[in-house]
Amino acid sequence: MGKPDAEGHGSSDGLPDLPPEWGRVVVPDDASALAAEAAQIRRELRRASGRPGDHRALALPLLVLLVAVLTTLAGLLAVTWPRANRGNDRPAPTPFAPPASLTGRALPALDLVDAGQAPVPLRGLLPAMIILVDGCPCPDRVADAAAVAPLGVAVVTVSGGRTVATVPSSPGRDVRALADPTGGLRSFLGQPARPGTATALLVDRAGVVTRVLPELGPVETYREDLTALAA
């Protein structure tokens, strides 16, 4: 059932107050609750059809009934209208922004683990191309990077958790496969793993990040930067 306002004869939904002489008006939540009152008024109208003076007496109940129906419909419209548009008000997802701000920053001293769960200091492998494969193993991309990496530059894959991802073999070059159980490298990157995408960091022998590849692509896009790590 609906509720009157604090005065007992108005509405708390921002609608104008009813005249006090109308008494206490209760607005139901469902307009169907007024069916009984409407039927009673119709019966009285039929009985008073031959008595002109009764029409004036019935005018006030009819007006009260009309106001109650309109108030109920207005309240239902106010409640349901915002819900219909709620799905259109959601902000569009923010496009992926390359973490270019990492360039020139020092790689943190992180201890990763190998397949035997032995700790491996990441900074002890520099200079290196570090490929995060927690979003995609991308064996072809990893093999291409290992094939063009100059001597003295390590190629390291890093998976999430403690399970070390299997890496493809490359003629003449080994790829060091590690895992990051604490997620420290991904936290340093500041971007979540994206399915189907491998991210790479190029880090020089001093431990400074020289380039970030948010999506590891063809070797032509980073060959010069990779060669520069050997200098």
Rank of each mutant, 00 (worst) to 15 (best):
L70T: 12
T72V: 09
T72E: 08
L73D: 09
L73V: 15
L73Q: 12
L73C: 09
L73W: 08
L73M: 09
A74P: 01
A74Q: 11
G75S: 01
L76F: 00
L76E: 12
L77I: 12
L77K: 10
A78T: 11
A78W: 02
A78I: 03
T80A: 14
W81H: 13
P82Y: 04
P82L: 06
R83C: 06
R83W: 11
R83S: 09
A84I: 08
A84T: 09
N85Y: 15
N85H: 15
N85V: 15
R86M: 11
R86A: 15
G87V: 14
G87S: 15
G87T: 14
G87D: 12
G87N: 10
N88F: 13
N88D: 15
R90M: 06
R90Q: 13
R90P: 03
A92V: 14
A92K: 03
P93R: 05
P93C: 06
P93W: 03
P95H: 08
P95I: 13
P95V: 12
F96W: 10
F96M: 08
F96N: 10
F96T: 10
F96P: 07
A97D: 10
A97G: 10
A97R: 15
P98Q: 02
P98K: 05
P99E: 01
A100E: 14
A100P: 02
S101L: 07
S101Q: 11
L102M: 02
L102I: 05
T103C: 05
G104T: 05
G104L: 03
R105T: 14
R105K: 14
A106C: 02
A106I: 07
L107K: 04
L107V: 04
P108K: 08
A109N: 09
L110T: 12
L110G: 06
D111A: 15
D111P: 03
D111R: 15
L112N: 09
L112C: 07
L112V: 06
V113G: 03
V113C: 01
V113Y: 05
D114I: 11
A115E: 11
G116F: 00
G116E: 09
Q117G: 09
Q117D: 14
Q117W: 09
Q117P: 01
Q117M: 08
Q117Y: 08
Q117F: 06
A118T: 13
P119R: 13
P119N: 09
P119T: 13
L122F: 01
G124L: 07
G124W: 03
L125D: 02
L125E: 10
L126M: 04
P127S: 00
M129S: 10
I130H: 02
I130A: 06
I130Y: 02
I130R: 00
I130T: 07
L132I: 02
V133I: 07
G135W: 01
G135F: 00
G135M: 00
G135A: 04
